[in-house]
């Protein structure tokens, strides 16, 4: 069951990664014409991703919270005994970054709500950049930790 939930957590995070990267690039590096792969990736209506991103973040967060105890018992103890401090510290940072991002979600929802308020353009760029960073960091850290020692 835990392995199934871990895979589901990973799948949700991949979907979240795609959505939040689409939205971040649509405001930080916008493109009006969708000619090639890269320009098409940037030429999306960022605001349409907002609710999906919130739902995916919550789903990924809850699944992460459910599989956290097996990690604490089996993986973290191994990381400590193997003295893999960088991996352990990266997971600690992930834990804090996603928690802070969770608290930022209502504000993120407010600034990205349609119709978009021009006065909140700067806040939109900042919130999506922070969220995008936290999601990428969390994804890569989780991936590396799982490669070092998976939950079993």
């Amino acid at each position: 069951m835990i392995v199934f939930l871990l895979i589901l957590h990973g799948l949700c995070s991949v979907a979240l990664l795609g959505a939040v990267t689409h939205q971040a690039l649509s405001v930080w590096w916008p493109s009006r014409k969708a000619r090639g792969l890269v320009t098409s990736f940037r030429a999306v209506h960022g605001a349409k991703f907002t609710n999906g991103i919130i739902l995916l973040f919550l789903a990924t967060f809850i699944l992460g919270g459910v599989i956290y105890p097996p990690y604490r018992l089996a993986v973290r103890t191994y990381l400590e005994s193997a003295r893999l401090w960088t991996v352990n510290g990266s997971f600690e940072l992930k834990e804090q970054f996603v928690a802070i991002s969770l608290g930022m979600l209502p504000f993120y929802w407010h600034v990205w709500r349609q119709p978009l308020d021009e006065a909140l353009a700067g806040a939109r760029r900042a919130t999506v950049a922070l969220l995008c960073f936290a999601v990428w960091f969390g994804f890569l850290t989780g991936h590396v930790v799982n490669n070092v020692r998976g939950i079993f």
């Binding site: 608290g103 930022m104 504000f107 600034v111 922070l130």
Partner: peptide, 11 residues
């Protein structure tokens, strides 16, 4: 408005 992202960033 900036406190909504500035404080989380600082944290």
């Amino acid at each position: 408005t900036w406190i909504g992202w500035g404080v989380p960033l600082a944290t």
